[in-house]
Nucleic acid binder design. Structure first.
Lengths: 218, 218
DNA sequence: ATATATTTTTAGATATGTCTAAATTTATTT
DNA sequence: AAATAAATTTAGACATATCTAAAAATATAT
């Protein structure tokens, strides 16, 4: 059985691994978890002893098979709970992250599989993020970030890659959600901002927003 | 915000208070929580400082208004989650306790009220235990334990007062569940065991089982 | 390639929650 | 009412997970 802290470190390492390649640095984990680099260093030693990570001093870290399995399982739990919170309890997508951060640590062989069944084995969560399957496979999406879309191309919003209240609430304000149709009108090279068309209205979108919006080309 | 340990102590103190009157002793808490009396003593000091209990050294303890409110809220969460696990996820009533012990500590203003609504505001959990309302009221049942029933009196099983796997599974084996009609045939004074009639079949029930079965007289 | 900056680790402290063993207080018995 | 038993508290230790400050290793720049 793993402690809460251990699970959170594994999750952080997985999360960083998924967005950049190569080994994960102590500092990266430190900022992901909001703990000091010293604490991270301590914990890495413990995780190493438990064979959850492959770690060499000063050389960064990667998950072991066991560690990855465990981390993916936490991600699965997180996303299934988010789905439950939004689809069944009527939360809106910006409110669920904190609660799911707690629910993902509930330990029960049965619970999560029953929840999965109850939700009809969803492949994607309310943010469009893929939900790992029971055996640890992560479904792929065939999407690209909005900022990589080309001019005059039309697509559908399939997901977001940032789970922050301020961001999600801003999207709600812009009337953007999963399934929204979007066309890229213009890219400003100076600040990488975009002009897009949504429901026949022109809309300005900054690069910071665009890079976290996943689009499937129609 | 309260820690997991604090919440568990409050819950234990409430649980003991509900089944016996007067102040709660250190030893009673010790056996309820499975921690040493020394640890209990330590924790009582902390809970006292936080004004969650009224405590005088060597004199036992009772919950303060704040402490009781908090403890009842945990009980509410526990029983709502048990209801969800049984009614929606299809767990059987002997399996849910451990999972609910974890879920009861999830912190969210919104979550439990939404869950309550989702479950249609149930008044009793799958074991027949009353679920405290949002404002902390505990519904009453008008029931008596089976061992206090009189000869030839008929009643309906409304609940159980022991949340232990072995007990609940044994009830399942005896075909006893919430709603089962039961008639008391005979009381053996020597060992306080009972003979009852269920679905026109005679059945032997020990005092240990009978005292945890809540009956409403028809 | 040497100096400087950055990153990472170690050392030492702190808070929480637990334990056992010993001391103290309260309750019970004779 | 004194002796004994039981319950409770204190003292001292330990594990986990964190921190800051200092040391060590690695990376970067001149």
């Amino acid at each position: 059985m793993y402690t809460l802290a251990e699970e959170n470190y594994l999750k952080a390492i997985l999360s960083i691994s998924l967005s950049e390649d190569g080994k994960v640095s102590t500092n990266a984990i430190s900022s992901e978890t909001g703990t000091s680099a010293a604490s991270v260093s301590d914990m890495l030693k413990k995780l190493q002893e438990k064979k959850l990570i492959k770690y060499e001093k000063y050389k960064g870290v990667e998950l072991s098979k066991t560690g990855e399995k465990k981390a993916i399982n936490i991600l699965r739990k997180h996303r299934l709970w988010e789905t439950f919170l939004v689809n069944n309890l009527g939360f809106n997508w910006g409110e669920v992250h904190e609660v799911a951060e707690q629910l993902e640590h509930i330990k029960s062989k049965e619970l999560i599989d029953r929840l999965d069944t109850y939700l009809s084995c969803p492949k994607f969560d309310p943010h469009g993020e893929p939900i790992p399957s029971k055996n640890g496979k992560i479904p792929s999406r065939n999407t690209i970030p909005l900022n990589e879309l080309q001019r005059k191309i039309k697509g559908t919003v399939m997901g977001v890659t940032l789970d922050q209240k301020a961001f999600l609430n801003y999207l709600t304000q812009l009337n953007i959600s999963i399934g929204t149709k979007i066309e890229l009108i213009e890219k400003i090279s100076f600040d990488k901002s975009l002009t897009v068309k949504i429901a026949n209205k022109k809309l300005y979108i900054s690069n910071d927003v665009a890079k976290h919006l996943l689009i499937k080309i129609i």
